[in-house]
């Protein structure tokens, strides 16, 4: 028996919007720790990892570990039927081949339930080791989204370089080149507007902008984004989900042979 009640139901809608461009089908894993997911895109160069901790739910019952295969577009179609202020409850019985999403309006005058068929999905679960990163950049998520969008109108790839001067995003295409430098800026009115660079040593890596633009679909989930870079390691782009957990994206760098 599984029953997860999320008062802030709109958060689940935002989580789906943050993943469905990258991944079509995925297994959602429920355990005592929380509601989680790990899935790769079809070319296996990008990965999304989600954790919504059990403590973040108003009610969390998960009698035994359960993995539920879902088509994210179908799940999104169902969640779009929930109002933004609705409370969402996810329910499933042991051994069943469906999941029920229950939507309650805030004053309890409307209750809806949508049952969705589950799928069998073969997915590879990667063991991602903890790593020390050469540079970690924290910046406003809206600024990162703007940079990725702007640069993708010029080129297909971005070089992200971190030095003590700041973080530089560079691209080149048929029509020309573009460089955007963000300097460390801790002296802002609101902490979420700061750009903070923790650098052990300079690092420069190249990534496909198409994937980074997909990652920025998570912007509504968090005011800030953390970008962790190391030579020869996938970049980690993390959006913290307040009081619940995180959505992390991993992307393999492009390598010049």
């Amino acid at each position: 028996m599984l029953e997860l009640r999320l008062v802030q139901g709109s958060l689940l809608k935002k989580v789906l919007d943050a993943m469905r461009e990258l991944v079509n089908d995925a297994n959602f894993d429920c355990s005592a720790t929380g509601f989680s997911l790990q899935a790769m895109d079809s070319s296996h160069v990008a990965l999304v990892a989600l954790l919504l901790r059990s403590e973040g739910f108003e009610h969390y019952r998960c009698d035994r570990n359960l993995s539920m295969g879902m088509n994210l577009n179908n799940m999104s179609k169902m969640l779009r039927c929930a109002g933004n202020d609705d409370i969402i409850t996810i329910k499933a019985d042991d051994g069943t081949d469906s999941v029920t999403f229950m939507f309650e309006s805030p004053n309890q005058d409307k209750i809806a339930d949508f049952e969705m068929k589950l799928m069998d999905i073969d997915s590879e679960h990667l063991g991602i080791p903890d790593a020390e990163y050469q540079a970690i950049v924290r910046m406003p998520s809206s600024e990162f989204a703007r940079i990725c969008k702007d640069l993708s109108s010029i080129g297909d790839t971005v070089v992200i370089s971190v030095t003590k001067e700041g973080v530089k995003f560079s691209t080149a295409g048929d029509i020309g080149t573009a460089n955007i430098v963000c300097r460390q800026n801790k002296t802002v009115d609101k902490p979420e507007e700061a750009t903070i660079i923790e650098m052990q040593e300079p690092v420069s890596l190249t990534f496909a902008l198409r994937y980074l633009n997909s990652f920025t679909k998570a912007t509504p989930l968090s005011d800030t984004v953390t970008i962790s870079l190391s030579s020869e390691l996938p970049v980690v782009v993390e959006y913290k989900i307040a009081e619940m957990g995180y959505i992390r994206y991993y992307l393999a760098p492009k390598i010049e042979e």
Binding site: E124, L126, K254
Partner: peptide
Amino acid sequence: EVFQNTLVDYFNNK
């Protein structure tokens, strides 16, 4: 030529 390793190469084989 530019190419991309997969995440499986990074996390399961390295």
